[in-house]
Design a protein around this nucleic acid. Structure first.
Lengths: 211, 211
DNA sequence: GTCTATAAACCGATAGAC
DNA sequence: GTCTATCGGTTTATAGAC
């Protein structure tokens, strides 16, 4: 078949995201993809190169919403407290939804696993994704609070990430020990609470829909 | 030597916490402990049983500060907004410091790894630690906001944990890419910001020292 | 390109000398 | 209790038939 490579890559993305590199065997991948074991080395050379390849996909995320895009629509957005609060709300929701989208969950799962158990891919991941996202978000908070300290801006910029990471990784635990419905409601509540927190922390007016 | 067992256990705690069960080999443990490979099976029977043994230590944490202890000192603590804010501050700081203590960092690291990559230890861990801590904290927030929803209380109860998890796991990444000093200042800032957030979320007065 | 058979390396565990 | 040598099993990777 022509798409053996694609089948393998798909299976690898799911498996590596769920169990991590060392717990996934090439036999598991071949079986899930319904192709022959030898194909892995035919198409990718080695297990490690297949692993690296999954990151090429995970990293190619849809380009995020940025403050520049919001300012292009309304150049005066950051001149009022309500506008600032609105910007936080939009950026936080966008970030959280992109990284906690059930359909593409595996992408962030894969990245988080790599953060916590670094492999040779990790320096590349830092340069191409994590640093860029972090700097972009810190830049935005410095627009809002020009005299903020570096650590303050860092903590603010990473708040949505701390929430997304935790609940993404603990999802199985919560679903198994409580329920799937609870997890879904929790998901809605977390994003709402996180956004409200960000706005309150910066002493801005909380929009009605977040109360 | 009499403390071969102790040496092995020590090495195992550090290694399992840092790299996870599947990436650590018995040979690595024996080498780090400077004892013979055979000793592992002499003292613990198997790699898995040694792994379980590290959890016996990690789980035996110092008993946490509870709202009951605070109420024993001042039974009227929760009758004023200032008292409620004080209770949140004490409990949050206690939780964060216990779980993010640099000296005993490995304990939480080990537990987090188990949460994200469950092994046969995990059901026991859920029952003996995670469920207890979670329920205890949720109970406290229900005292403060009796008509809160389950998910609201859950999100509040787990906020310190989301922060501790994230920064504990990302510590290496931050230290290597920015600096150790930055990490130390970040650490102080995170606990302060988290506590302030908890208090603001519940519409309570923020103590002067947290502003 | 696909498949089977197998090589080469590694790991956990054990046997047995001391 | 400690140590060496080695077994048995699994894994990645490869060689070679088709």
């Amino acid at each position: 078949m022509a798409d053996t490579r694609e089948l393998l890559l798909n299976a690898a993305c799911q498996l590596f995201a769920e169990y991590g590199f060392s717990k996934v065997t090439t036999r598991m991948i071949a079986q899930k993809a319904n192709v022959n074991l030898g194909s892995i080395h035919y198409y990718f050379g080695s297990k490690e190169e297949l692993y690296f390849e999954t990151f090429r996909i995970a990293i190619d995320a849809d380009f995020p919403l940025t403050i520049e895009k919001l300012l292009a629509v309304d150049p005066n957005l950051l001149t009022t407290p309500e506008g600032k609060a609105y910007a936080i709300q939009r950026l936080t929701y966008d970030y959280y939804n992109r990284h906690y989208n059930f359909l593409e969950k595996w992408k962030r799962q894969l990245i988080f696993r790599e953060m916590f158990s670094p492999s040779p891919v990790y320096p590349k991941l830092v340069d191409k994704v994590l640093k860029l996202e972090s700097d972009k978000m810190m830049e935005f908070y410095f627009m809002l609070v020009p005299n903020a300290s570096l650590t303050e801006a860092f903590v603010w910029a990473h708040y949505p990430d701390t929430q997304a990471t935790y609940y993404l990784m603990a999802e199985t635990l919560i679903v198994e020990n409580i329920s799937l419905d609870f997890m879904a409601e929790l998901n809605r509540n977390v994003i709402k609470t996180t956004t409200r927190m960000m706005i309150m922390l910066l002493d801005l007016p909380v929009p009605e829909m977040l109360k």
